Computed example of a mutant assay.
Amino acid sequence: MAWNEPGGNNQDPWGGGNKGDKQGPPDLDDAFRKFQEKLNSMFGGGRKGGSGGGAQPGSSSGMFIGILILAVVAYVWNAVYTVDEKEQAVILRFGEYAETVGPGLHIYFPPIDTKYQERVTELRTYNLHQQMLTEDENIVEVAMSVQYNIEDIKDYVLNVAKPLVSLEEATQSALRHVVGGSEMYQVLTEGREVMGIEVRDRLQAYLDSYGTGLNVAKVNIESAQPPKEVQAAFDDVIRAREDEERAKNKAQVYANKIVPEARGQAQRTIENANGYRDEVVARAEGEADRFVKLMGEYKQAPEVTRERLYIETIEEVFSKSSKVLVDVEGGNNMMYLPLDKLTQSHGSSSMPSRQLSAQELNEITTRVTEELNKRVNSSRASGGRVSR
């Protein structure tokens, strides 16, 4: 049931209440006038005249001043800004570089000034995953990450329109150049660390030549592997190289064990040879010295010296022989002296069999020698001969 129909209790939804015949929507002019009066009361404006008068010129000026103040406050609010410790800002005045500001509270004046604020100490990361062609014409998939920061914010803002796009393209160029100059085995194994350093140096050179203001902190070669289609074959190659390396290490261990022993034996042989040489030289020198002295004695007494040498020689020979044969020239009999048997019988006559001492052996040799001398002297007239 509508509010103005019979039985609707004449309740005005706009809050007019029961006003008799003057029923209808609220007066918008009256509501606007009330709002204007509130603004005038806030900013010093007032109404002049009776309650039935319209808005005065003072009320319009007060509204304009209020709006102007609000605009100034909003402008100042937007113009004041804070630069964090990790940030820097570049101010352009009429499109031309004005200054670079550091941490703190600052103000600029748009649209005269333009502000570019960036984090300069924060390390950012750019990831790249692409297929590359190596020097030996093999394809590898390389995944790498570049950590960088803004080193010169002025160059970063003014020199290059899109410095991050330049970074991406320079990274691809540097990586292709380094991988294209390396063999696949180096890229897949121990050459990855060296390759990361080379890519970083080349990438930094590119960015410096472009004037991007970026600094490359580190380049990480996260993975390098052949394409999936030939992964199994390359795994076999890697295992074969690992077996080769293991065999080399085993051979090196064996060499480290054998070589010192061989060197020790060689040194021992050299020392023995040096000792033998010194012994032979010393014996030869002694024999030469003995011969010189003996020569002097022989000149003084030839017969005695000759006899003495003969006896010493016979003693030396007999001391090394267990059997002696004496042959007399012109005779049919040969005398046989078994010294080993004589020594055995000499030992068994007094006590059980034992080994003769050197002194006892010399005594027996002396007796045999005397006996031989006697026989030799008796047979000299007939030219007797003694043989061993």
Rank of each mutant, 00 (worst) to 15 (best):
I65R: 01
I65S: 11
G66A: 15
I67V: 13
I67C: 13
I67R: 01
I67N: 07
I69T: 11
L70V: 12
L70A: 13
A71P: 08
V72K: 02
V72S: 09
V73T: 03
Y75K: 03
Y75A: 07
V76C: 05
V76D: 00
V76G: 03
V76S: 03
W77N: 12
N78V: 01
A79G: 09
V80N: 01
Y81V: 06
T82V: 14
T82Q: 10
T82D: 14
T82L: 09
T82C: 02
V83D: 14
D84N: 13
D84K: 06
D84Q: 10
E85G: 08
K86Y: 06
K86C: 05
Q88L: 08
A89F: 03
V90P: 02
V90G: 07
I91V: 15
L92D: 09
L92V: 03
L92Q: 08
R93V: 10
G95E: 11
E96I: 11
Y97E: 15
Y97H: 14
A98S: 15
A98G: 07
E99G: 06
E99V: 14
T100W: 02
V101D: 15
G102E: 15
G102L: 12
G102P: 12
P103H: 11
G104N: 12
L105F: 09
L105Q: 13
L105A: 10
H106I: 08
H106A: 10
I107S: 10
Y108E: 15
Y108H: 13
Y108N: 12
Y108P: 09
F109V: 14
P110R: 01
I112P: 07
I112Q: 07
D113W: 03
T114V: 09
T114G: 06
T114F: 05
T114S: 13
K115L: 15
Y116P: 00
Q117C: 03
Q117E: 14
E118Q: 05
E118K: 02
E118S: 05
E118A: 02
R119T: 11
R119A: 15
V120G: 06
T121E: 12
T121I: 08
E122D: 10
E122W: 03
L123C: 04
L123W: 04
R124Q: 12
R124E: 08
T125D: 09
Y126N: 01
Y126E: 06
H129Y: 02
H129T: 13
Q130G: 03
Q130A: 08
Q130I: 00
L133D: 06
L133V: 12
T134W: 01
T134K: 00
E135A: 09
D136K: 04
D136S: 05
D136I: 07
I139K: 05
I139Q: 07
V140P: 00
V140D: 00
E141D: 15
E141N: 14
V142M: 09
A143R: 11
A143W: 01
A143C: 02
M144H: 01
M144Q: 12
M144T: 06
V146E: 01
V146G: 02
Q147G: 11
N149L: 05
E151T: 01
D155F: 03
V157D: 01
V157I: 11
V157N: 02
